[in-house]
């Protein structure tokens, strides 16, 4: 209990109190430049009535859902390789794999802008190869640009938990499966995948939760169709000047993430039970 108290105190100040303030503020309403502090559910009602809020929320969840799936699928083989096929200097491999993530997040987003841009690396490469006549415009300022960038930016958060859970798998189980006649595919499906599921779950949550509210990437690369709920929340606290609505959106976003994550954990638990 004594050991926990500094962490708990910090949580109280840095998490619970601000959350309480956010919750309280979402029940106020904006009035010119101040607040009407009488409690009301007006903001929540508006959120249901105006289509923009629901649509952006849905878009954010689907973009970060795609990001999560893409990242986990791309990172799993990397983590798998390091866990099973690298025998010496594993630490150095891990450091090298995470090396790109030592640069600033903003810098990586800008790098993608250069790569995906109209005169960017991909377009000029394809054009010099004669594969395309004119630059591909859908690369930048689109939802796909946001998905690509986020998937790269958050990859380290997938590789590490996946690696840890793959590394923990008892190799003798794999040998036993081979001895009993399983091929590589069956062995993977019946042993490796189920045993690495905790890693998959934590990687998915680690990526899904922060990317849903991401705001820098869609602001820089999303274009008009790529705006996410984070951008709208920022606008509420900036030019639109409606802090209570911003607070309401933040609370509802939190709820949505909690519900989706809860469903995801439940589903994986069911799948795990069925496999084993």
């Amino acid at each position: 209990m004594v050991l926990l108290s500094p962490a708990f105190g910090f949580m109280l100040v840095a998490l619970l109190v601000p959350f309480g303030i956010l919750l309280l503020m979402s029940l106020w309403t904006a009035q010119g430049f101040g607040f009407d502090t009488s409690l009301t559910l007006d903001n929540y009602r508006q959120l249901l009535e105006r289509p923009i809020y629901g649509a952006l929320m849905e878009r954010s969840l689907s973009i970060s859902g795609s990001v999560t799936i893409a990242t986990v699928i791309l990172c799993y083989p990397m983590a798998y390789y390091v866990a099973f096929h690298v025998h010496r200097n594993k630490m150095i491999w891990l450091v090298f794999i995470t090396l790109p993530f030592w640069t600033s997040y903003l810098l990586r987003v800008f790098a993608w802008k250069v790569v995906l841009g109209y005169e960017g690396v991909i377009n000029s490469g394809l054009m010099s190869l004669g594969l395309i006549e004119a630059p591909l415009e859908f690369l930048l300022y689109s939802q796909s640009a946001v998905v690509i960038t986020l998937a790269h930016a958050w990859a380290a958060f997938a590789i590490l938990p996946l690696y840890v859970s793959l590394e923990k798998i008892d190799k003798s189980l794999l040998e036993a499966a081979t001895d009993l006649g399983d091929g590589p595919v069956a062995r993977f499906m019946r042993i490796t995948l189920p045993l690495s599921l905790p890693g998959v779950i934590s990687a998915s949550l680690l990526i899904f939760i922060p990317t849903t509210g991401d705001y820098i990437t869609p602001a820089l690369l999303g274009g008009p169709d790529g705006a996410m709920i984070g951008n709208l929340i920022q606008k509420q606290f900036g030019p639109i000047n409606n802090w209570p609505m911003g607070a309401t959106l933040a609370i509802v976003l939190m709820l949505c993430i909690a519900v989706v994550s809860g469903i995801f954990i439940l589903l994986t638990m069911l799948v795990r039970r069925r496999i084993s």
Partner: peptide, 13 residues
């Protein structure tokens, strides 16, 4: 405030 709110909605589609 009204103009900004409306314009942000329009920009978002």
């Amino acid at each position: 405030t009204k103009m900004n709110a409306m314009f942000e909605e329009i920009k978002a589609g």
